[in-house]
């Protein structure tokens, strides 16, 4: 599904990614771990198409389509979803109105009519129940005054509404207490299918107790330096990242 080859990227002439390779197939869950500053969030933002980053070499393909050529919204239409580490507050637009606009803009891009209001409401009801979101919450301004946990839960709610092919969850576990973490993880697990894929970007192993990855990658200095199964995450939790850095030397 996702194929990244020899990806080099920089921001303001500072190299962040230095030859990254990653293949993700449909039905898989991948975790990307690594110390602060390794380039984890950069990778997420580059896949989503953030303009500040410049791809200088290499390619990113989603189902054989070159993502580098696409605007962020076109990548979203192609099925890329990024759960932001720091979701942006947008006063004046409610959660419901925002997600309606997002869904109908995506449908429009695919030549479809707006989703009928009845279907939209039904879907909003189902997905908000899945994530144990209070109805009142949906009429509040998007992310404005939300707690860290509410913001993350709202991100996964939007993911559930948009049903992406590739979901990238950037530090979704940060700011969540254990109960909220379980709700979010349960939501992600329910949304998983043989047709979609998930990339979890995380600093800690905690989330991976609830969403079990098929592969764990260690990102260090702009490259994936080690790949293993779920047990690698446990090893990293126990031993930290230093032993990997030493291995590299």
């Amino acid at each position: 599904m996702l194929k990244i080859q020899n990806l080099h990227a920089e921001i303001e002439e500072k190299a962040i990614l230095k030859g990254l390779n990653l293949s993700v197939n449909a039905g898989e869950v991948h975790a990307i771990m690594g110390p602060n500053g390794a380039g984890k969030s950069t990778l997420a933002n580059i896949i989503a198409g953030k303009e500040e980053y410049e791809v200088t070499q290499g390619s990113i393909e989603l189902n054989n389509e070159d993502l580098n050529e696409l605007a962020p919204e076109e990548r979203a239409h192609a099925g890329v979803f990024l759960s932001f580490q720091y979701p942006v507050e947008i006063p004046g637009v409610s959660v419901t109105n925002f997600i309606k606009t997002a869904i109908n803009e995506t449908r429009k891009a695919k030549g479809l009519e707006d989703m009928p209001a009845k279907d939209m409401l039904k879907k909003i009801r189902e997905k908000s129940e899945l994530l144990e979101i209070d109805r009142k919450f949906l009429s509040r301004s998007l992310n404005e005054g939300f707690s860290g946990g509410e913001k993350k839960r709202n991100e996964i709610f939007q993911m559930a509404m948009l049903e992406p092919k590739l979901a990238i969850l950037d530090e979704t576990d940060s700011g969540l207490d254990i109960d909220a973490l379980k709700v979010v993880a349960n939501g992600v697990n329910k949304l998983k299918s043989k047709d979609n894929a998930v990339i979890l970007i995380t600093h800690y192993q905690r989330l991976l107790d609830y969403i079990v990855p098929d592969y764990v990658h260690v990102l260090h200095d702009g490259k994936i330096v080690k790949t293993g199964d779920a047990s690698l995450a446990k090893e990293l939790e126990a031993k930290g990242y230093d032993w990997i850095k030493k291995e590299l030397v």
Binding site: K50, E73, A76, F84, V88, I90, E105
Partner: peptide, 28 residues
């Protein structure tokens, strides 16, 4: 710009996103 990118990431075009941000700005 961050708000605009957030909207685009959810499938909202840049033009529509700008409009929506301005609308939200005035809406209060």
């Amino acid at each position: 710009d961050d708000a605009l990118f957030y909207m685009q990431q959810r499938g909202i075009s840049e033009k529509q996103g700008r409009g929506l941000l301005m609308f939200a700005f005035a809406n209060t």
